[in-house]
Design a protein around this nucleic acid. Structure first.
Lengths: 217, 217
DNA sequence: ATCTAATCGTTAAGTAATTAACGAAAGCGG
DNA sequence: CCGCTTTCGTTAATTACTTAACGATTAGAT
């Protein structure tokens, strides 16, 4: 077994699928699972599955496979999903509201501890049981609540400003939904996720399909 | 100039950033822009910028850079963002509502032509000016409206069913938000985008940070 | 206890993406 | 008009990710 150094990013993204499935198997009372089974169920090739678990520092047994609940625990532990972490969200538009109401927080060990906006019409309202505060209170609340991660769901032109606030308040992990690249110090991790990616990619893929048919004529 | 074959996926994802910036520059009346400027503004290395535009089949001029509006057009054209395309959305939960209300559709040339759900309490309501229909009407509406792309925002256990419906109705481009891998025929493009990715990645990144500090002691 | 078949862990090969390098084209100053 | 400097286009090198290969291990049968 290799002492796990750093999980490839692509591998980290697949962990969610494994975990989802493993928890399902666990609920069904299944004890063990092979890489082939996991692969068939997740649509990931069995080799990739084994490689991923190898990176995790896996503990499968030949002829048997992986012990379901142990593997699930290992994933949760390596990704640190069970350590409680506080997060805040800046910008309560449609996306912010959807995120706030989502169950992803708990699944990754986060608690949405605060929501901020600058719009007086939104400040004071609630989302997912959390009161929306004025962005001017940002610094104080982040300190008081021990917030370690920030989510940016403001319009693109305001994103850098939101990021600066977060960095200034000591936050070193940012999840950014605005289609801009934030300028942050080296020790701050930024995870970008634009909502538009899917549509843009599909648009391009649909065109390629068309082209293919065309040349086939 | 190379005749552009297939844009690397990673490159496609960056196009949104370029386009966002180019349109801004265009609005400011700037005529041309260099790879260095674009890189500085987007946080992408200048080499990567040139490489990306090379893949596009770019038309920059030494000593000047790229012509802003021409480059923007090229991107829109290669990604096919201006061809009108109809999409439908299945599952009007919080995420579905946020997507429906978003402006990303128009930016990528899509029109949200129909929304489906199976919950009687939701059917008949409206989101972003689109009436929610019963999922039983799916096939007919997709044909009638000429819908070419589908978005899945249902809970994970229902995702495959939604995908099957889409495939059955002739849809060949699917944007899936459920954390499952859809089983679809080879000629159907599936673009997966789980909302949880960001949090999971951050969780892992924050842990690595902690470890780093630890070993530094 | 030994053999067989399955399945893992790990190294190696192949593929895709990023980064580097550098010749060629084009504006600009003298 | 001629060099000088900038910046592109393109090929090459590096790095990261994926896929393949295969020896080692173990359960289960005889």
């Amino acid at each position: 077994m290799q002492e796990h150094k750093k999980l490839p990013r692509a591998s980290v993204l697949r962990m969610e699928l494994y975990l989802e499935l493993l928890e399902q198997l666990e609920a069904n009372g299944q004890q063990s699972v092979t890489s082939a089974e996991l692969g068939a169920a997740t649509g990931i090739s069995a080799v990739k599955v084994r490689q991923d678990f190898f990176h995790l520092g896996s503990e499968g047994k030949p002829k048997i496979g992986y012990e379901v609940s142990q593997l699930a625990s290992l994933i949760r532990s390596v990704l640190d999903l069970e350590t409680p972490k506080n997060a805040c969200l800046v910008g309560l538009g449609n996306l912010g509201r959807a995120l706030a109401a989502s169950d992803i927080w708990a699944r990754a060990g986060f608690r949405l501890a605060a929501i901020f906006d600058r719009d007086q019409k939104i400040i004071g309202t609630e989302a997912a049981g959390v009161r929306v505060r004025n962005i001017t209170e940002f610094f104080g609340v982040v300190k008081a609540e021990g917030i370690a991660a920030g989510v940016i769901t403001v319009p693109a032109p305001d994103a850098q400003e939101a990021g600066d606030l977060m960095v200034g308040a000591g936050i070193r992990a940012i999840w950014n939904f605005a289609p801009v690249t934030l300028r942050v110090p080296d020790d701050v991790v930024v995870e970008n996720q634009s909502l538009a990616w899917g549509l843009i990619t599909l648009s391009y893929a649909m065109k390629s399909d068309k082209d293919k048919n065309h040349t086939a004529l």
